[in-house]
Amino acid sequence: MIRPDAPVLLEIRDLRASVDEQPILKGVNLMIRAGEIHAVMGRNGSGKSTLSKVLAGHPAYSVTGGSVLYRGEDLLALEPEQRARIGLFLGFQYPIEIPGVSNLEFLRVATNGRRLAQGQEELDTFAFEDLVRERLQVVQMDPAFLERSVNEGFSGGEKKRNEILQMALLEPLVAILDETDSGLDIDALRIVAGGVNHLAGPDNATLLITHYQRLLDVITPDFVHVMAAGRILRTGGKELALELEDRGYDWVDEELASLEAGEAARTPLEVA
């Protein structure tokens, strides 16, 4: 839902980041308002997953330039846990297994951290059980998963559902879902997408990172961004995703090549 007067939740300006001194993001610009669903598409290695990890604060990535404002606040100055508590959520492409830590306990600690940050009361064990059982329905998950260790021995689809369950509990303002569709069969995809649609509302925003159109068949984006070589090359509506599906990414390469040629031609002049 596009409302030009909706508050800006996330504003990314000329964001640059590298991993092991290798530049990956080379100037990303993106503005997300409340109520919007954005999709970032692009080939492997285009920098889309890096973008999601930099926003969540993964320590392996260092920001080398640019800025990110989250509701006007400097997001990059915050620790990952602080970002989560104020409402940023990253759904992992490969959710991590944590043996020995009960899923229920993990969900409770995480939820209470978020609640405290919003000035709400912590939930005790019983109140939380009620809440979690209600939210389980969003992703049609078996309560038995609560008793197991976090993601341990979960199938790919179960892990992704557990991610969406976390999102349902944390009620983020900006949810970044990194390749949430990967490894899902069609039924699981429908359930996960149903959960995301259910949670999307006028006050929050969703940033989908995906390879394929098939996720966008079930979650309709307001904006589609095409990423290549660490930049957003083109932005359009949902039809841009269909165009990509039709034409593939080759035109992206051409556009990128001419862009880089232009920059290469300009650079000596600037130096001079």
Binding site: E79, P80, E81, F89, P95, I96, G100, S102, F106, Q166
Partner: peptide, 27 residues
Amino acid sequence: ISADQLFYLQSRGIGFEEAVSMMVSGF
């Protein structure tokens, strides 16, 4: 205890040291 496990817990709002102690006490 891997950096990825720690980051996963942190990205859910669980502080670094609490994340470590959660994993250790789970163990």
